[in-house]
C-alpha cells in the first residue's frame, strides 16, 4: 500500500469537489501504492476532476488529499514540482516545434536550458518523435500530438505523472503504442496514474485500479483482484422488457444470473465480461439512447463486440464490485 519510504503514492480522506451545486466528487477515501494506477470510470464519473484536484488546479470543497506525501491544499507548488500532467484535451502550441516546446516544458519545471535540451531530445526519442522533433506541432497527426503531450509530461523526470485519457482519439495501432509507452514509464522510476473509460487499457498497463462512478469510488485495489473475480454486476436499465431475454442469453452461455432489482449479478467460470457482451449483442439490450446513462456505458461495448467477437476493444459495462 505504501512506497518503500513508507509513504503512499496518493491518499485521500473524505475528498470532495463541487462545481457550484453539482457535486463531482463525493467523500473519496482511498490510498494507492507506487506503481501504475488505473483510474477507470464512465464519462462524467469524475476522473478528470480528481486529477485536477490532485494537481492543485481545483481546490477540494471538502476533505484532503496527499500526493507523494505532500498535502495538496497545503503546498500545491511542491506537488507540481514532482509530478507531470498530460491533459485530456490537446495542450500544444501549434506554432512551435516539438523540440522547442519540450525544452520549454522542461525549463518551466526549473531545469537549466542546456540540460533541458538534452532531456527533451532523450524524451522525444523515447516517445518516437526524434525524427519529427523540428516539425511544427500544428502539422502533427493526432497520435503524434498525444506522444508530444506525453513527452512534455515526463521531460522533467517527475516522480508521478497523471495521464488523462491518453489513448483518446487514437487508432488501434496508436492506442497500442501509447499503452506500450505508458507501460515503459515504470522502467524510468516514474509512477503513473492513468485515467480511462476503457477497462481494457487499464488492464494492459496498470497493476492497481480505482473505479469511479458518479464521483464515488466503487473500488480501489490491485487489478488482479478485479480481473480474477468471477462475478460482475450489470445494471440493466432498459432492454424493452424485464430482462428475460438477456438472462436467457446469459444462462444459455452457462452463467449464473441473480436478479436484484435492475441489477443482474452474473457469475461465470469463464470471463463474465465476455459473456455479458455476447448476451447484450445477441439480444440488443445495449441499444439504448446515448443520452441515457446506461447508454453511455453499454452501447460502445456492444458495438465493439459486434465488430470483433473474440475480444472487446473496451469494457464499458457498469461494474459493481
Amino acid at each position: 500500500m505504501t512506497s518503500p519510504s513508507g509513504r503512499a503514492l496518493i491518499s485521500t480522506s473524505q475528498l470532495g469537489h463541487a462545481y457550484g451545486d453539482i457535486v463531482a466528487l463525493h467523500h473519496l477515501d482511498f490510498t494507492v501504492p507506487n506503481g501504475r494506477i488505473g483510474l477507470v470510470g464512465a464519462n462524467g464519473a469524475g476522473k478528470s476532476t480528481l486529477i485536477k484536484v490532485l494537481l492543485g488546479i481545483l481546490d477540494p470543497t471538502e476533505g484532503s488529499a496527499q500526493v507523494l506525501g505532500i498535502g495538496v491544499a497545503d503546498d500545491p507548488i511542491a506537488v507540481r514540482a514532482r509530478v507531470g500532467y498530460m491533459p485530456e484535451e490537446t495542450c500544444l502550441p501549434l506554432a512551435q516545434t516539438a523540440a522547442d516546446f519540450t525544452v520549454y516544458a522542461a525549463e518551466l519545471a526549473g531545469i537549466p536550458t542546456k540540460a533541458a535540451r538534452q532531456r527533451a531530445s532523450d524524451v522525444l526519442t523515447l516517445v518516437g518523435l526524434h525524427e519529427e522533433r523540428f516539425r511544427y506541432l500544428g502539422e502533427f497527426s493526432t497520435g503524434m500530438k498525444q506522444r508530444a503531450m506525453l513527452a512534455q509530461a515526463i521531460v522533467h523526470d517527475p516522480d508521478l505523472v497523471f495521464l488523462d485519457e491518453p489513448t483518446a482519439g487514437l487508432d488501434p495501432e496508436g492506442r497500442t503504442e501509447m499503452l506500450s509507452l505508458i507501460g515503459r514509464l515504470g522502467e524510468f522510476g516514474i509512477n503513473v496514474l492513468v485515467s480511462s473509460h476503457v477497462l481494457t487499457d487499464i488492464e494492459t498497463t496498470c497493476d492497481w485500479v480505482i473505479m469511479l462512478d458518479g464521483g464515488r469510488v466503487l473500488r480501489s485495489g490491485p487489478l488482479t483482484g478485479i480481473t480474477e473475480s468471477d462475478t460482475v454486476d450489470v445494471e440493466l436499465l432498459r432492454d424493452g422488457g424485464d430482462g428475460h431475454d438477456v438472462i436467457g442469453a446469459l444462462q444459455r452461455r452457462g452463467a449464473e444470473v441473480e436478479v436484484r432489482g435492475s441489477v443482474l449479478r452474473v457469475r461465470s467460470a469463464d470471463d463474465a465480461f465476455d459473456l455479458i457482451r455476447d448476451a447484450l449483442a445477441e439480444t440488443g439490450a445495449g441499444e439504448v439512447p446515448n443520452d441515457h446513462r446506461a447508454g453511455r456505458c453499454l452501447r460502445p461495448g456492444v458495438q465493439a463486440a459486434r465488430r470483433s467477437p473474440p475480444r472487446p476493444a473496451g469494457r464499458h459495462l457498469r461494474h459493481r464490485p
Binding site: 494537481l55 488546479i57 507540481r80 495542450c91 502550441p93 501549434l94 518551466l108 519545471a109 512534455q152 497523471f162
Partner: peptide, 18 residues
C-alpha cells in the same frame, strides 16, 4: 490568447508556478 485557446495553460498548471 494562444495559450488559453490551444490549451497550453494545462502545461503551466502542472508546473511549480502560480
Amino acid at each position: 490568447i494562444p495559450d488559453r485557446v490551444e490549451g497550453v495553460l494545462a502545461v503551466y498548471a502542472s508546473r511549480p508556478m502560480r
